[in-house]
Every structure is written in structure tokens, then in C-alpha cells.
């Protein structure tokens, strides 16, 4: 086994949404390089609990990079900055012994901090509720090949559908814009036949909800794409811009 590491953590602590919050420093000793970032935090929390202190609150669920729960800005970078990786899949071997790691929550007006590193991401749910779905008849399972979908389009739709809604795009964007998320959702459904009936209404309603939630605008910096753990392409934002324009011309109203 590789040599254990001793690290210094500078972590954002905030008791609740109304608290002003502050940074606190902790020592993380005897950390295995094979631990994930969240496992390292678990170890630190065990220590905190042992000494009667409040553990650091953070979101996590699957810990295998597909649920989109974990959300922290590690050294100023959403999910830590390894290509296509969530914080739970980021291993401590990427850090060096003795280094100080700053851990902050997602910072966006639309994502208010609940506690410590936990932010309220229900803004994404409300955007989804405005059109991130398709309406189909329920009943017996349709034949697998009843609706033909071309391979190219289904591949592209699946690329967009990879979005796990973690919010790293918002966290990384200098404008706290949610465009990559919304673009992935709009593109995914606009590319497949099942998404056609609500295509225009979806684009108009989801964009409007995104604006109402108080997310910023796109400056085409590419930061979102660079931190996205699912490597959602900036191309989808261009596609969303087309979809929205098309919907305005075709429908003009929600």
C-alpha cells in the first residue's frame, strides 16, 4: 500500500440557510491514497463525531458517479477537476501529502446553501417539471421496434441523457448559468420521436423556468463542459438555442 497522507482541510461550515457561515480548518491524517474524496471526508467526520463535534454535512448517495448527489467545489473546481469524474469517484492519490484542500459548496443564488456543503438543488427539479418528460399512453409494453430511431440520433440523445443533474455546470460557470443542464434535457428529448409532441412547449417552458429560478446567462466560456462529470458537450447549448428559436417561430407562446 502506498504511503498514507496527512492533509489540511479548509471547509465551509454553515449551520443552516440563515447562518452567515465561515471556513474551518481540520486535519485529515492517515489518509490512504486509494480512498475516494468522500471516504476521506467520512474519516474526518468519524474523528469529529468522536470528539463530540458536528460532522461536515455533504450530499452523497450512489458513490459510483451516476446519481448526481455529490456536489462540492474542491480547490475552486467543481468535483475537483478530473476529466469526467464526480467527487465520489475522485481518489486521494491525486492530492499530495501535506497539501491544503479548500472545500466549498456550489455557489449560486438559485442553489441556496442548506448546511455546510449541502445546497438546495430543487430549482433543477422545477425546471424538469416544466417539460423534461414525455407523455405516453400507459398500458402494455410497446413493441421494441415500433418506433424507428436512427442510430446517429439515438447516440446523440443518449449523450445528452447522460446528464445526472449534479449542478457542476452551474457551480463552475462564472455566471452560475444552468444552460448546460437545461440544454442536455431539452436536446435529449427533442432528438427522439417520443419527444416530438411537446417539443416546442418544452423548450419555451424550460427556458422560462430556468430564467425564473435566477440562473445566469451563457457567456460561452466552456467551463461547464470542462467540469461536467458526464462530459456533456457545449454543442447541446447551441442545439438548445436552435430549439428555442424554432419554438418561438413555430409556437411563440407556451
Amino acid at each position: 500500500m502506498d504511503k498514507l497522507m496527512n492533509l489540511k482541510l479548509k471547509v465551509w461550515r454553515q449551520d443552516d440557510a440563515d447562518d452567515v457561515g465561515r471556513f474551518e480548518e481540520y486535519q485529515a491524517d492517515d489518509i490512504s491514497p486509494d480512498m475516494s474524496f468522500l471516504e476521506m471526508l467520512d474519516v474526518v467526520n468519524e474523528g469529529l463525531i468522536g470528539s463530540g463535534k458536528e460532522p461536515i454535512a455533504f450530499d452523497s448517495d450512489c458513490r459510483e458517479g451516476i446519481c448526481g448527489s455529490c456536489s462540492m467545489v474542491i480547490n475552486g473546481t467543481a468535483h475537483g477537476g478530473q476529466k469526467g469524474t464526480t467527487a465520489c469517484q475522485l481518489h486521494m492519490r491525486h492530492f499530495s501529502d501535506g497539501m491544503t484542500i479548500t472545500i466549498e459548496p456550489w455557489r449560486a443564488t438559485a442553489f441556496p446553501v442548506h448546511r455546510d456543503l449541502v445546497v438546495d438543488r430543487t430549482a433543477f427539479d422545477r425546471i424538469q417539471q416544466k417539460g423534461g418528460f414525455i407523455s405516453v399512453r400507459t398500458g402494455s409494453v410497446p413493441d421494441a421496434n415500433a418506433i424507428p430511431v436512427s442510430k446517429d440520433e439515438s447516440d446523440l440523445a443518449m449523450d445528452a441523457a447522460q446528464c445526472i443533474g449534479c449542478g457542476a455546470c452551474v457551480a463552475a460557470c462564472k455566471n452560475a448559468s444552468a444552460m448546460l443542464f437545461v440544454a442536455a434535457k431539452i436536446s435529449h428529448l427533442s432528438l427522439v420521436p417520443q419527444g416530438q409532441p411537446e417539443r416546442e412547449r418544452r423548450a419555451l417552458a424550460m427556458v422560462k423556468q430556468m430564467d425564473d429560478e435566477g440562473f445566469g446567462n451563457c457567456t460561452v466560456t466552456g467551463s461547464c463542459e470542462a467540469v461536467c462529470p458526464k462530459e456533456i458537450s457545449l454543442d447541446f447549448i447551441a442545439r438548445m438555442n436552435r430549439e428555442y428559436g424554432r419554438a418561438l417561430i413555430k409556437k411563440g407562446t407556451i
Binding site: 475537483g80 477537476g81 449560486a108 438559485a110 462564472k174 457567456t219 460561452v220 466552456g222
Partner: peptide, 30 residues
């Protein structure tokens, strides 16, 4: 855009893959 983030990050962006910094941080012109 200003209203969308009122609290800035304390740490400057230093991704674990240092070579990706240029992709992650918005260009000065932008």
C-alpha cells in the same frame, strides 16, 4: 449574471489535473 452568484469562491481554481485549468477557467476576454 452578477445576481446569479453573489458569493464568490474563496479558492482559485486548481483542478487535480493541472493541465485542464485552461479549459475550466473562463478566458480573460470572456
Amino acid at each position: 449574471n452578477r445576481e446569479a452568484r453573489t458569493v464568490e469562491y474563496d479558492a482559485a481554481a486548481e483542478p487535480v489535473d493541472a493541465h485542464r485549468r485552461g479549459d475550466i477557467v473562463a478566458k480573460f476576454a470572456a
